[in-house]
Nucleic acid binder design. Sequence first.
DNA 1: AAACAATATGCACGACCGTTCGGTTAAATG
DNA 2: CATTTAACCGAACGGTCGTGCATATTGTTT
Lengths: 222, 222
Amino acid sequence: MDEGVAGTKGEGRVDGRVARGNETRALILKRAVDLASVEGLEGLSLGRLAGELKLSKSGVFALFGSKEDLQLATVRAAVEVYVRHVVRPAAELPPGVGRLWHLCLNWLAYSRDRVFPGGCFFYGAAAEFDAREGKVHDALAAARADWRAYVEETVREGQAAGEIDAGTDAAQLGFELLAFLEMANAESVLHDESGSYDRAATALLTRLRAATTDPSLLPDAP
Amino acid sequence: MDEGVAGTKGEGRVDGRVARGNETRALILKRAVDLASVEGLEGLSLGRLAGELKLSKSGVFALFGSKEDLQLATVRAAVEVYVRHVVRPAAELPPGVGRLWHLCLNWLAYSRDRVFPGGCFFYGAAAEFDAREGKVHDALAAARADWRAYVEETVREGQAAGEIDAGTDAAQLGFELLAFLEMANAESVLHDESGSYDRAATALLTRLRAATTDPSLLPDAP
DNA sequence: AAACAATATGCACGACCGTTCGGTTAAATG
DNA sequence: CATTTAACCGAACGGTCGTGCATATTGTTT
């Protein structure tokens, strides 16, 4: 069984020591996701993390158990940030092509605003572990599969709402939209430039217009 | 001054020692590009490289001068492979939308056939160094810029040949085509699957059909 | 044959890596 | 109160990393 919130039992009482530990863990992970987005998950080092945060290396180690577990925890922490910036705001909108469009816009903002200093965390991490084996690869593959499935579901909801052509292949449309998003991130980070986000927005809008039943639901220009 | 072919002077005579060195260098780089495509350019290690090839670590080191120079040489070696598999075969076709289409097909084959065991070398390497500074980043950024410029030039040649709409924004079309290619590579390598190449081909063909003046120049299905 | 140049090696270095272990401090428990 | 439990530290371990350096080997030049 998994404790949703660590330390909760019966009433809201929490062990003060565990609470302190969770705070430290969160502090470490906050730094870890930023570091990993630039240097990679393998570039994470217990010593460096401890040094920057003025903790002992063995203390950091003890809080996670192993480097691999630290990497896995870092991935989970990045997922939370991702959901907060990209998924949740769009979920508040009614299903339809507008929600899909804003999902894309949120993603572009998440990348452009450098929520992670190295651009999209998962772009870098997935590229780093795509051809390897192990738990970290599996966690990243699962995270990406979830994200793709969510986008496809959003497409299907748009179809159910009558705003997206019923004949549209949801997986195909998702593939193309995500391709534009990731391409924008890649170009922008590599060349330290932001024009690619406009290109992506143009491409996204054109593609969505071709798939919607009512173009007036989408803006004229990005 | 840079020697295009090392050791050439006056006639075609080559120093036997230099020739041997070049062979060893090529042997090392052959292994290095494969290794780096899976483990990353930073994951390259002189000791491991030397061990696998039964050379001494200091010998490998002396041949390149530093790890950074080894990485740069590895990037150059990967460019050669890339040009041989993707660019050159398409350059033999007449300018037009057909050349552009085959450029994309070559890329898909280059990725799908795992010319590098970890998928497209530059996808991984660029993601690894995109947010860093230094010569390796610059080399990768330059390589990618060259590739994009080449694709755009191919688009413009197609326009000059009257096979692509004159009103098409070459940079925008290039952006979208490359997005599909890289997305296919990313999905395929991460999930160890090959269906994404079909998706990419479908997307590419649809996009090219929308931009060409004569759809009969393109196949009906990928 | 002598002088030279380039490849390749063996050995050692300092730095950093993840990990282990014993010990200290402080909160919860009885 | 004493005891247990959890966070955290300091020091050390075995390994690997990139890098120097002195030297042997091999090919070229005069």
